[in-house]
Design a protein around this nucleic acid. Structure first.
Lengths: 343, 343
DNA sequence: CCCATTCCTCAAAGCGCTTTGGCTACCTCT
DNA sequence: AGAGGTAGCCAAAGCGCTTTGAGGAATGGG
């Protein structure tokens, strides 16, 4: 069933039917009703490809899914995706997911844009000096960045959380509790968020004349396995050199780290304090840890919702949003942080 | 830059350029080279919408992403998606993701199919008597099911693992180790895999004249939180009534369950044995548990790869595959299973 | 009563691609 | 030399929709 058949059935022209369907004002109310009724009865659905060809609008937003045989699926990514989906659902939008080798994200992005399959692009997993920014700016297509790219002019639309502030505040709290030796389990250092979190931590330490020991810093993919390994390594240090406070860039890393701490027969919140960044993963709630985790919290899913909202609004030209948003993370204190142990 | 411009530039007809691009034989080798060179230089990319309109092929496969404000993002889903993506990447395919309220998956599927945006459909999270099957069969579009639907005629193409056998074997092992009181932490009972796993377990128990106690069975979403709660509840039973062997439908459930066991000061693999089904989640490796977990293993990601392979092959009409595949899960014994404790 | 106005409807021109069905050379064979 | 092939190219007809520009039928004003 296509427009032509439908309009013949109704004894109307394609124009009128099309207008009736798309809410144009110059259609008689009665006629419109008749059309809508026929649509319901026949189950007619406009062909999207034709619609897109005619309008240039695709009704979908494109994103690149970083994937390759060696690459891990990421809980953080899917949490975020859920948020995007939630909002897209309300507007009858969908996503076009292009899987791409992480080494060819620029190319994947370009292909996606050129394919005519999408109206807007979205990127995340930003890196310092991210080459995708130039490419996006050169494209005449709306886009939105989740995160930022340190080292690049911040003249692009983004949504990010204030990573510096989050880790600055967390470090400050631990300093106030008397901690002087710190460790950081961070994500890969080429990611912007990892850089900023470290910066925030460094800044707070520097205020007290302290600095992060290289041996107590790890930059790894954010899996529990890496958390376990990194923490085990750190715990092998002599007791009086060993950090008493640990910051984790993800509750997933914390999961492994806590296991290492348990295995070393240390008590979380007493012998060693920990603050992790909580993306509010459905899978992993910091309050469910045996010793509930103190966290800096900011929902990835909420970010997804907001990003979809902005992108869709832009495509439909219905709303204008602030180009750049910086969300504050909340510092939520639970039992994993305590006063520094006496030496 | 479109076909018309490109062909004018080359002094050729659109037909010839199109044919040159799509590998038709009736184009002079020299001419084809000339065209390809021009394409490289101009960066021409055919408009997908037009291509689709003309051919009816979209170069993408559709899937419904179950999502709603209350619904959790699922690690299992994203692990699977990674596999799909991995394979799709090799064929320059992409996915169209339609987020859908779980209560309206049939509708979402229909819309997706009718949208003309996809060449093939894929569904998972199968339920008993799944209503989507009828809908899929009525559509004249290739589709593939991950899982099966108990209660429906198995006359549709699927890829599934042998859930009955997996849990039958696991139960059998525990019986051989002397266990007589069992618990099951399962996924929601409306899911086909959950039904089958329970059936497999029931069958093994029945052979010994045993039956699963209702009080020791839980059907919940597969999160660590639910695992924790369910296990806590079970551990409150009197010691001589309490199960000594637990089967979990996911390592994620096991994660919570193990925490409950630890909190109860019980020793995994001694006081209580556990076997979990392992989807080979990157996040959660059973060998990394403090007490490594005995598992029935089958990679979700591998399933994703295979499904993409079949679907794409079908769209391209290049290969034919067996319509139905049933994979065996491996039973891998680690430290979480031990001889039943003396009463 | 005629012209302007408003309301509704329509025919037709794209959108950028693929594909059908020719058409022209140029060979090859008998 | 003429019939029959074949290689290489092209014009034009769609694919199903939106949108432009125009026209017919009511309505109202002078």
């Amino acid at each position: 069933m296509n427009l032509k058949q439908l309009s013949q059935m109704l004894g109307l022209s394609q124009t009128t039917v099309s207008r009736a369907l798309n809410g144009y004002p110059e259609v008689n109310h009665e006629t419109r009703e008749r059309v809508l009724k026929a649509v319901r009865e026949t189950g007619y659905r406009p062909n999207k490809a034709a619609q897109r060809l005619a309008t240039g609008k695709a009704g979908s937003i494109g994103l690149v899914m970083p994937t390759s045989p060696g690459n891990s699926s990421d809980v953080h990514f899917s949490e975020f995706l859920t948020g995007l989906g939630e909002e897209a659902l309300r507007h009858d939008f969908h996503f076009v997911l292009t899987p791409a080798d992480p080494n060819d994200e620029v190319g994947a992005l370009r292909r996606l844009a050129a394919s005519g399959n999408v109206d807007a692009l979205f990127v995340n997993y930003m890196r310092g000096h991210d080459p995708r920014l130039e490419m996006l700016k050169s494209l005449s297509m709306p886009f939105l960045v989740h995160g930022r790219s340190i080292g690049s002019e911040p003249d692009y639309p983004f949504l990010d959380i204030d990573n510096e502030a989050a880790f600055y505040d967390a470090t400050k709290l631990l300093l106030q509790l008397g901690h002087r030796r710190f460790a950081l389990l961070n994500g890969p250092i080429y990611f912007d968020f990892a850089i900023r979190r470290k910066n925030g931590m460094d800044a707070a330490l520097a205020e007290r004349g302290l600095a992060l020991d290289e041996a107590c810093t790890s930059h790894t993919p954010m899996t529990d396995e890496q958390g376990l390994l990194a923490m085990e390594r750190i715990l092998q240090m002599e007791k009086d050199k060993r950090p008493t406070a640990v910051l984790c860039s993800s509750t997933v890393l914390a999961l492994g780290a806590v296991r290492a701490i348990n295995q070393a027969k240390l008590k979380l919140g007493e012998d060693i304090s920990m603050i992790a960044h909580d993306d509010v993963l459905t899978l992993l709630k910091p309050e469910n840890f045996t010793v509930p985790l103190t966290t800096t919290r900011s929902s990835l899913r909420a970010a997804g919702v907001r990003i979809a909202e902005r992108l869709i609004g832009e495509i439909k030209h219905t709303e204008t949003f602030p180009a750049q948003e910086l969300w504050k993370a909340e510092l939520i204190v639970r039992a994993s942080t305590g006063v520094a142990p006496a030496d």
